[in-house]
Design a protein around this nucleic acid. Structure first.
Lengths: 377, 377
DNA sequence: GGGAGGTAATAAACCGGTTTAGGCGCGAAA
DNA sequence: TTTCGCGCCTAAACCGGTTTATTACCTCCC
């Protein structure tokens, strides 16, 4: 706190040149001679000068920051591994470009819109990320009106004129269903996310078409809300059916975990009487009993890609496409052939090493860049 | 994107006054007459003027933003409900004061220090929050050197000259141990967090003294790392002991959940043979099988309090104390009297309504502002 | 009537950078 | 020799606010 930070004027004075010359030298622009440039840089180094983002931001009319508004309750947010990974990925890109992330956490849609308006009105950010896309989402239009460059996370390119980053959920669900069919399941249910969310819808559609493609009739599908309570309720409904499913594919891990616990609480053996598959590969999934079979998406890579796109958009660059690995199915102990009723197999040995179902060969799109087996590390 | 946003100069021109007068009028300062003020405000409203934070920030030499640097892997972060709640609480206060939160997520300590240096050097923030305090933490000193106002989250006031916000963990652990003792347990173990973290240490100390106060000898204590893997490993170690505990108190929910699953995987009945208590009250806790008894802290309130303190610090205000509710124990189905071995009680009915153990009367500090029972909503 | 005191408003400096317009000296082309 | 062009550098404008110094005017009071 002792002395103030040196400004560009201090550097200029010490180096005996003008402010402008210092600016040129520090930004590598032409307009200063070689040895003058050296001298300026040396002085800047000696003085410990760093550019003031406030000054620069005002001068270049840029905030040098981007925004992420999350409309979720702390309960949903705290147990969903998605945002942690997304933000981590975003950060890796932003930090190396000198950008910062402004995070807003709001409770409802109303405040979310208000948040965007404020970010735009005050000029705090140069662009924003948009997540949790809904079917007829008003936010892209709003952001367009506000003149805020936007990258939509989780909307396939065909679904709008917006710049977007997309991982196709469907291979994950497809692999899940195929895995179950291979095991011999014929009555496969789905617990879906809310129909107003595109990822709720697309996962449901993927389940339906995968089941149909396997020559089966889709089992019951219950639309829920991605929450633990919702997963538990939906599971109870499914198990209460006259002909309960032998396998359930959940739209996320949280519902799957709650569903699995509910089933166990009803005395249902898993995976003996009921196979369970989640979506997300929560860090917890491998440590449950039984360990949860689930689809994993490279969310960190998603965040990175989104950040690249947004910075490109802000800088007016072209912004090359980044191809991301497709989801893969991580097979653990919560899935098994149906009708093992009452075998009483020793629970002890049930958590084997996870097997990864990579759809690379079939679809030609999946790629797995990172070591995919998290259970033993 | 059509026309540019109006500036204060535009307002001045339209209103037929000087820039300075407009600034006075908009900030409620003396120096303009009543009806001139009215006219200026009207013009500003008509033009849809909002202050540019960039201009203001430069002028007042403030960033009007505060920072939070989180040094965690996405795996740890994604499953720990702490930060979601903390950030939510922080946001409620910041947003109503026009401040914003700059979030940095980094992987290691090295980058964390680098982050702080950059935030300070570029003047991006006016102050920062400090979490995950370690025993001989170098960061407060660093931030002091950098001249960055800091509020430490989770350090008791006596432990340093730093401005801090604190909830005493210990009543939660104490209540947990007392609950177990009341149930009849005599061999109570603890799975602790890393000894370099103050909340790891303090929870361990609380366990030890609560057990001792009950006239018992502390059972085995294993120092782990707050991760699922660590919780599973520690549980295996404890169950392999010649005299395994009849109850385990974990330093967080994640380890407790993994530990519970591990025990179940070994054929141990919970809570029949082993009682389990976590810490955090993760949104999942109520939906596990059996539902997890755990201590709940008002983390959102913590975030709010921390934000108030930091803004007070930044504004040079005094910053009144905010008293926060102590942790309470949420009793669910994972705890029961010991030695129920092999009762084969129907799992179905095990998830009763949660009971809250509030230590208000005993300690005179606990307060529960929010509806505390989350299981049925 | 003239100085003291107060209010309303303006002009201008300032925050810390970037960027443009322009001056000066010098070498090459006409 | 003149002129054009170019490299190097400075002065000054600019981004959008806040704040200080200053001026104009009015009132009060001796």
């Amino acid at each position: 706190m002792g002395t103030k930070r040196p400004t560009i004027t201090d550097v200029a004075r010490v180096a005996g040149v003008s402010k402008g010359a210092v600016s040129f030298a520090l930004n590598g622009k032409p307009g200063v001679g070689a040895q003058t440039r050296e001298r300026i840089l040396a002085v800047a180094r000696d003085l410990g000068w760093t550019p003031s983002l406030r000054g620069r931001a005002l001068s270049v009319s840029r905030a040098l920051a981007v925004g992420l508004v999350i409309a979720r309750t702390p309960e949903t947010l705290g147990v969903d591994p998605f945002f942690a990974s997304l933000i981590t990925g975003i950060e890796t890109v932003l930090s190396e470009r000198g950008y910062a992330l402004m995070l807003h956490v709001v409770s409802d849609e109303q405040s979310e819109h208000e948040s965007y308006r404020r970010l735009a009105a005050t000029g705090r950010v140069d662009g924003v990320f948009l997540t949790d896309m809904q079917v007829d989402d008003l936010r892209p239009q709003l952001l367009d009106d506000l003149g805020l460059p936007t990258v939509v996370i989780g909307l396939s390119p065909g679904q709008g004129p917006w710049s977007s980053v997309y991982i196709d959920d469907r291979p994950g669900i497809t692999a899940a269903v195929e895995h179950l069919v291979t095991l011999g399941h014929r009555n496969i249910s789905h617990v879906a996310g809310p129909a107003e969310f595109v990822h709720g819808l697309s996962r449901r559609a993927a389940w339906e078409s995968a089941v149909t493609d396997a020559g089966l009739t889709p089992g019951a599908c219950i639309t829920s809300d991605f929450s633990a309570q919702g997963g538990a309720d939906a599971t109870n409904q499914l198990l209460d059916l006259a002909e309960p499913p032998t396998a359930i594919v959940y739209a996320n891990d949280l519902m799957a975990i709650a569903g699995m616990s509910t089933a166990i609480g009803r005395g249902v053996d898993i995976p003996g009487q009921l196979s369970i598959i989640g979506f997300d590969d929560s860090p917890l999934a491998a440590y449950l009993q039984p360990a949860l079979t689930t689809a994993r998406t490279d969310v960190v890579g998603w965040g990175r890609a989104a950040a690249y796109r947004l910075l490109a958009l802000v800088d007016g660059e072209k912004g090359g496409e980044i191809d991301l690995p497709s989801p893969v199915l991580v097979v653990r102990a919560s899935t098994a052939p149906p009708c093992h009723q009452g075998t009483g197999a020793p629970l002890k040995d049930r958590r084997g090493p996870a097997r990864i179902h990579d759809r690379k060969t079939k679809l030609g799109v999946a790629r797995l860049d990172h070591a995919p087996v998290p259970t033993t590390s």
